[in-house]
Computed example of a mutant assay.
Amino acid sequence: MTRLRLYKIARITGHVSWWAFVVAVLLGTTTTASIGWSRERVQCSTGNPTLQVCSSLATRDVPPGVDILATYATVALGFAVVAAITEAITVSQRIPGVFTIAVPIAAATVTIKVLNGTSWWENSFDSARTVTLVAAAIAVREAWAYKFAPGITDLSSGAASTSKD
Protein backbone atom coordinates (compact mmCIF):
# COMPACT_ATOMS: atom_id res chain seq x y z
CA MET A 1 0.00 0.00 0.00
CA THR A 2 1.43 3.37 -0.96
CA ARG A 3 1.74 6.32 1.40
CA LEU A 4 -0.80 8.25 -0.65
CA ARG A 5 -3.39 5.48 -0.42
CA LEU A 6 -2.80 5.05 3.33
CA TYR A 7 -3.13 8.82 3.77
CA LYS A 8 -6.44 8.92 1.89
CA ILE A 9 -7.83 5.97 3.83
CA ALA A 10 -6.81 7.62 7.10
CA ARG A 11 -8.45 10.93 6.08
CA ILE A 12 -11.71 9.29 5.11
CA THR A 13 -11.74 7.09 8.22
CA GLY A 14 -11.00 10.13 10.38
CA HIS A 15 -13.84 12.18 8.91
CA VAL A 16 -16.40 9.37 9.15
CA SER A 17 -15.32 8.44 12.68
CA TRP A 18 -15.39 12.07 13.83
CA TRP A 19 -18.97 12.56 12.66
CA ALA A 20 -20.04 9.21 14.14
CA PHE A 21 -18.57 10.42 17.45
CA VAL A 22 -20.37 13.78 17.21
CA VAL A 23 -23.75 12.19 16.46
CA ALA A 24 -23.38 9.59 19.23
CA VAL A 25 -22.35 12.21 21.79
CA LEU A 26 -25.15 14.58 20.81
CA LEU A 27 -27.77 11.83 20.98
CA GLY A 28 -26.37 10.35 24.17
CA THR A 29 -26.33 13.44 26.34
CA THR A 30 -29.02 14.47 28.75
CA THR A 31 -29.43 17.72 26.84
CA THR A 32 -31.32 15.76 24.18
CA ALA A 33 -34.22 15.61 26.64
CA SER A 34 -34.80 19.30 25.93
CA ILE A 35 -35.62 18.48 22.30
CA GLY A 36 -37.99 15.66 23.21
CA TRP A 37 -35.67 12.66 23.11
CA SER A 38 -35.27 10.88 26.40
CA ARG A 39 -32.07 8.99 27.10
CA GLU A 40 -34.03 5.72 27.33
CA ARG A 41 -35.61 6.26 23.92
CA VAL A 42 -32.30 7.04 22.28
CA GLN A 43 -30.70 3.99 23.88
CA CYS A 44 -33.58 1.73 22.79
CA SER A 45 -34.00 0.33 26.28
CA THR A 46 -35.76 -3.03 26.38
CA GLY A 47 -36.82 -2.52 29.99
CA ASN A 48 -39.74 -0.32 28.95
CA PRO A 49 -42.45 -2.18 27.00
CA THR A 50 -43.46 1.00 25.16
CA LEU A 51 -40.02 1.19 23.57
CA GLN A 52 -40.04 -2.23 21.94
CA VAL A 53 -40.04 -0.62 18.49
CA CYS A 54 -36.23 -0.65 18.53
CA SER A 55 -34.41 -3.27 16.55
CA SER A 56 -33.53 -6.41 18.46
CA LEU A 57 -30.05 -6.13 16.93
CA ALA A 58 -29.43 -2.83 18.71
CA THR A 59 -30.35 -4.23 22.11
CA ARG A 60 -29.18 -7.83 21.85
CA ASP A 61 -26.98 -8.98 24.72
CA VAL A 62 -26.60 -5.51 26.24
CA PRO A 63 -26.24 -5.70 30.01
CA PRO A 64 -28.45 -3.38 32.06
CA GLY A 65 -26.87 -0.04 32.79
CA VAL A 66 -24.66 0.01 29.68
CA ASP A 67 -24.89 3.23 27.71
CA ILE A 68 -24.87 2.07 24.10
CA LEU A 69 -24.34 5.53 22.63
CA ALA A 70 -21.43 6.28 24.96
CA THR A 71 -19.84 3.04 23.79
CA TYR A 72 -20.38 4.01 20.14
CA ALA A 73 -18.94 7.46 20.81
CA THR A 74 -15.88 6.03 22.53
CA VAL A 75 -15.20 3.56 19.73
CA ALA A 76 -15.73 6.22 17.05
CA LEU A 77 -13.39 8.64 18.83
CA GLY A 78 -10.82 5.85 19.11
CA PHE A 79 -11.01 5.28 15.36
CA ALA A 80 -10.71 9.03 14.74
CA VAL A 81 -7.59 9.26 16.91
CA VAL A 82 -5.98 6.22 15.26
CA ALA A 83 -6.78 7.74 11.86
CA ALA A 84 -5.24 11.06 12.95
CA ILE A 85 -2.09 9.28 14.12
CA THR A 86 -1.88 7.37 10.83
CA GLU A 87 -2.41 10.58 8.88
CA ALA A 88 0.28 12.38 10.89
CA ILE A 89 2.77 9.56 10.32
CA THR A 90 2.12 9.37 6.57
CA VAL A 91 2.60 13.13 6.16
CA SER A 92 5.98 13.00 7.95
CA GLN A 93 5.81 16.53 9.36
CA ARG A 94 6.26 16.74 13.12
CA ILE A 95 4.59 20.00 14.19
CA PRO A 96 1.57 19.76 11.85
CA GLY A 97 1.34 16.07 12.73
CA VAL A 98 1.06 16.87 16.43
CA PHE A 99 -1.74 19.33 15.67
CA THR A 100 -3.44 16.75 13.45
CA ILE A 101 -3.65 14.48 16.49
CA ALA A 102 -4.28 17.15 19.16
CA VAL A 103 -7.07 19.13 17.46
CA PRO A 104 -9.66 16.30 17.33
CA ILE A 105 -8.81 15.27 20.90
CA ALA A 106 -9.18 18.84 22.17
CA ALA A 107 -12.44 19.36 20.24
CA ALA A 108 -13.82 16.07 21.58
CA THR A 109 -12.81 17.01 25.13
CA VAL A 110 -14.57 20.38 24.91
CA THR A 111 -17.65 18.77 23.36
CA ILE A 112 -17.91 16.10 26.05
CA LYS A 113 -17.24 18.51 28.94
CA VAL A 114 -19.81 21.05 27.72
CA LEU A 115 -22.51 18.49 26.88
CA ASN A 116 -22.13 16.75 30.22
CA GLY A 117 -22.90 20.02 31.98
CA THR A 118 -19.47 20.49 33.45
CA SER A 119 -16.85 22.99 32.52
CA TRP A 120 -13.63 24.38 33.81
CA TRP A 121 -15.13 27.67 34.96
CA GLU A 122 -18.82 27.01 35.74
CA ASN A 123 -21.02 24.19 36.96
CA SER A 124 -23.16 24.12 33.83
CA PHE A 125 -24.09 26.09 30.74
CA ASP A 126 -27.37 27.40 29.44
CA SER A 127 -28.60 26.06 26.08
CA ALA A 128 -27.32 28.92 23.94
CA ARG A 129 -23.83 28.76 25.39
CA THR A 130 -23.78 24.97 25.10
CA VAL A 131 -24.73 25.05 21.42
CA THR A 132 -22.20 27.81 20.74
CA LEU A 133 -19.30 26.01 22.42
CA VAL A 134 -20.10 22.63 20.85
CA ALA A 135 -20.44 24.23 17.40
CA ALA A 136 -17.15 26.09 17.93
CA ALA A 137 -15.35 22.88 18.93
CA ILE A 138 -16.71 21.09 15.87
CA ALA A 139 -15.82 24.05 13.64
CA VAL A 140 -12.23 24.13 14.92
CA ARG A 141 -11.79 20.45 14.13
CA GLU A 142 -13.36 20.84 10.69
CA ALA A 143 -11.31 23.95 9.86
CA TRP A 144 -8.12 22.14 10.80
CA ALA A 145 -9.06 18.98 8.90
CA TYR A 146 -10.09 20.71 5.69
CA LYS A 147 -7.97 23.87 5.52
CA PHE A 148 -4.87 23.64 7.69
CA ALA A 149 -3.95 19.95 8.07
CA PRO A 150 -0.92 19.01 6.00
CA GLY A 151 -1.40 17.06 2.81
CA ILE A 152 0.79 14.53 1.12
CA THR A 153 2.46 15.08 -2.22
CA ASP A 154 1.46 12.62 -4.88
CA LEU A 155 4.94 11.45 -5.89
CA SER A 156 3.71 8.66 -8.12
CA SER A 157 2.20 11.04 -10.69
CA GLY A 158 4.85 13.73 -10.33
CA ALA A 159 2.31 16.31 -9.16
CA ALA A 160 3.63 19.04 -6.90
CA SER A 161 0.32 19.85 -5.23
CA THR A 162 -0.89 18.39 -1.98
CA SER A 163 -3.80 16.04 -1.78
CA LYS A 164 -6.62 17.30 0.48
CA ASP A 165 -9.35 14.66 -0.10
Score class of each variant (00 low, 15 high):
4 L>P: 11
105 I>M: 12
28 G>I: 01
64 P>A: 15
144 W>N: 06
10 A>L: 01
6 L>D: 05
85 I>F: 05
5 R>V: 14
89 I>V: 12
84 A>N: 08
25 V>C: 06
49 P>C: 10
137 A>I: 01
41 R>S: 09
130 T>R: 00
71 T>G: 06
155 L>V: 12
39 R>D: 00
90 T>M: 08
65 G>C: 12
74 T>N: 06
34 S>T: 13
91 V>H: 06
82 V>W: 03
36 G>V: 00
123 N>F: 12
106 A>S: 10
127 S>P: 13
76 A>M: 06
87 E>R: 13
105 I>F: 07
3 R>V: 08
149 A>S: 11
123 N>Q: 14
94 R>P: 03
165 D>R: 15
65 G>Q: 13
84 A>M: 09
137 A>N: 05
143 A>D: 09
51 L>M: 13
31 T>S: 08
61 D>P: 02
51 L>C: 05
51 L>T: 02
36 G>R: 02
41 R>Q: 11
29 T>I: 01
141 R>I: 02
56 S>Y: 11
112 I>Q: 11
161 S>Q: 14
30 T>N: 10
52 Q>R: 15
149 A>P: 02
32 T>W: 00
107 A>L: 04
27 L>H: 03
145 A>S: 14
157 S>G: 05
117 G>V: 02
134 V>T: 01
146 Y>A: 15
13 T>Q: 14
72 Y>C: 10
112 I>G: 02
16 V>E: 07
125 F>E: 07
11 R>Q: 10
68 I>D: 07
84 A>H: 05
37 W>R: 00
140 V>K: 03
154 D>E: 08
139 A>V: 01
133 L>Q: 02
122 E>M: 14
89 I>H: 05
156 S>G: 09
95 I>W: 08
146 Y>P: 04
119 S>V: 02
143 A>P: 01
161 S>T: 12
124 S>D: 14
72 Y>H: 09
132 T>N: 10
123 N>Y: 07
66 V>H: 11
21 F>G: 00
159 A>Q: 09
66 V>G: 13
21 F>Q: 00
16 V>L: 13
148 F>D: 07
120 W>L: 13
55 S>I: 12
98 V>R: 12
121 W>Y: 04
126 D>G: 06
7 Y>F: 11
113 K>G: 10
5 R>E: 09
138 I>L: 15
137 A>D: 01
163 S>Q: 14
145 A>M: 13
24 A>M: 06
26 L>Q: 04
99 F>I: 05
92 S>A: 15
101 I>V: 15
113 K>A: 12
109 T>P: 06
52 Q>H: 15
111 T>P: 01
60 R>L: 14
102 A>I: 06
48 N>Q: 14
26 L>K: 09
72 Y>A: 12
161 S>V: 15
72 Y>R: 06
36 G>D: 04
126 D>V: 08
44 C>Y: 04
162 T>Q: 05
56 S>C: 10
113 K>L: 13
72 Y>D: 01
39 R>P: 00
46 T>H: 14
141 R>G: 10
10 A>W: 03
82 V>I: 15
91 V>A: 03
116 N>A: 10
127 S>M: 11
22 V>L: 06
101 I>R: 07
150 P>F: 12
152 I>P: 01
147 K>N: 15
112 I>K: 08
